[in-house]
Amino acid sequence: MSAVTEVAANVTGKKVLITGGASGIGAASALLLASRGAKVIIADLSDEHGQQVVSQAEQAGNPILFKKVDVTSGDEVRALFAYAMQELGGLDVVVNNAGVDHLPKALHELSDDDFDRTININLKGVWHCMRAAIACMAPSGGGHVINLASVAGLRSSPGLSAYCASKHGVMGLTKTAALEYAKANIRFNAVCPSFIDTPMVRNTMETMDEASQKKLTHASPLRRLGTVEEVSAAIAWLASDESSFVNGHAFTLDGGMLA
């Protein structure tokens, strides 16, 4: 037998930018990709958490860079991508992970502030980053943009109307861009997790009674929350060349919830 010379989901040398990279899925993805030889920049609004991820990566011998950014600002996003192009010498993969949720409320009880904040970060922020990624990737032969959507972008989500609307919007942007920029060799895909064990989900669960927490935890047929490691492994595969014919796809990780 010949020796295996490459590992699955090989991302060695890939130049990767991850927004929302200071915690949860973004941090796990950054650490995994860096451990496999990718050159990674994370961006986030939290300096403190961003530096913690940088320190964790350095301790593992897989350095990554951090830059603070507010994805709702087009100017800050453009500056972030200029920084990434300068530091990495190009961009192969952009993971648009920055996002928020809101406390479960009936649609008519949701405040203007909650709705605007959710849409501005989850949808307009992704649009800002997609636009900047296209400007960087189109002149250099292409790339891959991976947007974090949700099962809430594929189905209804009672009590989370603004979040659901934002993630449906992300799916619309992803599918439209996948067709618009295929000739430029820029692929667009979305990752659609269900309930994952992240700080954001845990914070939401703290507002629930015990019965509601159990219902959320058992929402999938596997009767548990997903892990950030499971989602980051999927992102690593998408970031590799093994996913080269995947475009405009909703990559669902839901334990069978939508089956």
Rank of each mutant, 00 (worst) to 15 (best):
Ser212Trp: 00
Asn10Arg: 13
Ala233Glu: 12
Leu107Ala: 15
Leu91Trp: 04
Gly248Thr: 06
Leu173Ile: 13
Asp241Thr: 10
Ser2Gly: 05
Ser243Asp: 11
Asn62Lys: 15
Glu76Val: 02
Tyr163Lys: 00
Ala22Glu: 11
His168Asp: 08
Val126Lys: 02
Ser244Pro: 09
Val126Trp: 02
Ser166Arg: 00
Ala211Thr: 14
Val77Ser: 06
Asn10Phe: 00
Lys39Ala: 12
His144Gly: 12
Ala79Asn: 13
Lys175Pro: 09
Leu123Trp: 02
Ile196Arg: 07
Ser55Ile: 03
Ser232Arg: 11
Lys39Tyr: 14
Ile186Tyr: 05
Ser55Ala: 15
Val201Lys: 03
Ala219Cys: 13
Ala30Trp: 07
Ala38Val: 11
Leu17Asp: 04
Ala177Asp: 06
Lys167Trp: 05
Val145Glu: 08
Ala178Asp: 08
Phe195Met: 07
Ala22Pro: 04
His218Gly: 00
Pro199Ser: 09
Gly13Cys: 09
Ser140Asp: 13
His218Ile: 00
Ser2Thr: 15
Arg117Leu: 03
Asn203Pro: 00
Val4Met: 10
Glu229Ala: 13
Gly90Tyr: 03
Gly172Asp: 04
Ala236Glu: 04
Trp237Asp: 00
Glu109Met: 09
Thr204Leu: 13
Thr12Leu: 13
Lys68Leu: 01
Val93Gly: 06
Ala28Met: 06
Val228His: 07
Asp114Ser: 07
Lys124Ile: 03
Gly13Trp: 12
Ser2Met: 13
Asn189Leu: 03
Val246Trp: 14
Cys129Leu: 01
Arg131Ala: 10
Ile235Leu: 14
Ala182Phe: 09
Leu80Pro: 02
Gly50Ile: 06
Ala9Asn: 15
Ser73Asp: 04
Ser156Glu: 15
Ser240Asp: 07
Leu31His: 07
Gly153His: 08
Gly21Gln: 04
Ser111Asn: 09
Glu229Phe: 00
Ile196Asp: 02
Lys175Gln: 15
Ser29His: 06
Val94His: 03
Ala162Lys: 08
Ala106Met: 14
Leu123Ile: 02
Gln86Trp: 03
Glu58Ala: 15
Ala98Asn: 08
Ala239Ile: 08
Arg155Pro: 00
Gln51Tyr: 12
Glu6Asn: 13
Arg117Ile: 01
Gly141Glu: 11
Asn96Val: 02
Ala234Phe: 08
Thr12Asn: 15
Gly26Ala: 05
Asp112Pro: 00
Asp113Ser: 13
Val71Lys: 01
Ala133Ile: 04
Gln51His: 14
Lys183Ile: 14
Arg78Met: 14
Leu258Ile: 05
Met137Asn: 10
Lys39Ser: 15
Leu88Ala: 01
Ser232Val: 12
Gly159Arg: 00
Thr252Arg: 02
Leu88Lys: 03
Leu110Asn: 07
Asp112His: 07
Thr204Ile: 15
Ser240Gly: 10
Phe115Val: 09
Glu6Val: 14
Gly24Arg: 13
Glu6Ile: 14
Ala259Tyr: 13
Ala236Gln: 14
Asp209Glu: 12
Phe245Arg: 08
Leu17Ile: 07
